[in-house]
């Protein structure tokens, strides 16, 4: 097991290099110069001044050197300064992590709590009205654009019914609330974003769970378990479910990067100050330092997420944990 992990870790190094190279190349190649704050507001700026500012940022050196500088800086967790407001990129990113993480974790929890039982129940009642209805609904959910559903829900819940607030994470008079009121306020604001972020994955996961459970139920060892005299519920939960849930573990690992990737669209719609929105703003402002930093960060997390998923799967499935004798 340990050897397996070490091998995978080593294999990550070329991946890491590849990610950084490609990110760098893509951003540098994209047409349009990075706008530096100082001269974006001054249309009369002279050519020398521009050149001087570029030299300051190190943008005049050959690409190799720029890449090298960038990598060595990153290794020391120095992501440079935002080109749009001069603040350190690291600060801007880290202050947004908690909120994005929070929403995505809650969303993941929500998805798991609903998709797994739904999938299992559909599998058990295969072919029934319940199953068919749910399958149709999930199909629709899968095909519907998330931001559209958000708009519809916003229309219904926020405007027509007025149950939930439409944007932000706190209300205007937040500071005057008591502790308990503050919690409820944040909660109310978060319900909709958490819900809609999860809808897409809910559909996929539930369908996958259903398929996995059906397959597990048809395995020979299920018949053998019944032949032993096991009551049906034990057969289902101890034997079938345990096997069916295994591939879900991998999927969980794969959704780890999603935890920080943040959804640009949802965060913009709900005016939530998270990583996704930061990226959007940076993209609009052509703030290449922030853009590159976020892309690399999320890519690395994806890589780690995959590794964790593989390790978890390897641990949980004895066929991988113990090789054949």
């Amino acid at each position: 097991m340990l050897a397996y992990i070490l091998r995978r870790l080593l294999g990550l190094i070329p991946l890491l290099i590849g990610i950084t190279v490609i990110s760098f190349v893509v951003i540098k190649l994209a047409p349009g110069k990075p706008v530096i704050l100082q001269y974006s507001l001054n249309p009369k700026i002279s050519l020398e001044e521009i050149k001087r500012l570029e030299k300051l940022e190190g943008l005049d050196k050959p690409l190799f050197v720029q890449y090298g500088n960038w990598i060595s800086n990153m290794a020391r967790f120095n992501f440079g300064y935002s080109l749009s407001d001069g603040r350190p990129v690291k600060e801007k990113i880290f202050e947004r992590i908690p909120i994005t993480l929070c929403i995505n974790l809650l969303s993941l929890l929500f998805v798991l709590l609903i998709a797994i039982p739904l999938g299992v129940r559909s599998a058990l009642k295969q072919g029934s009205l319940f199953d068919t209805t749910i399958t149709v609904l999930l199909f629709l959910l899968f095909a519907a654009p998330g931001f559209w559903l958000t708009l519809l829900l916003m229309q219904l819940l926020c405007i027509q019914l007025g149950w939930l607030p439409i944007s932000g994470i706190t209300s205007l008079d937040f500071e005057y609330f008591t502790w308990w009121q503050k919690i409820i306020d944040v909660g109310r604001h978060l319900i909709l974003p958490v819900l809609v972020s999860g809808l897409g994955s809910l559909a996929g996961l539930a369908r996958y769970m259903r398929g996995s459970m059906i397959e597990a139920l048809n395995q020979p060892y299920i018949y053998a378990a019944r032949a032993k005299g096991l009551p049906e519920n034990k057969v289902l939960y101890k034997h079938a479910l345990r096997n069916a849930v295994l591939p879900i573990v991998t999927m969980l690992g794969l959704s780890i990067p999603g935890l920080l990737g943040g959804s640009v669209i949802f965060e913009s719609m709900f005016a939530i100050p998270g990583l996704g929105r930061l990226f959007y703003e940076a993209a609009m402002m052509r703030d290449s330092n922030v853009i590159m930093a976020e892309i690399v960060l999320v890519s690395i997390l994806t890589m780690l997420g995959n590794l964790i998923a593989d390790i978890c799967y390897g641990y949980v499935d004895p066929r991988i944990r113990y090789a054949q004798k």
Binding site: L15, G18, P257, I295, S299
Partner: peptide
């Protein structure tokens, strides 16, 4: 490598 990238980003 390509799969690690957040494609939407």
């Amino acid at each position: 490598i390509m799969l690690c990238f957040p494609t939407f980003y």
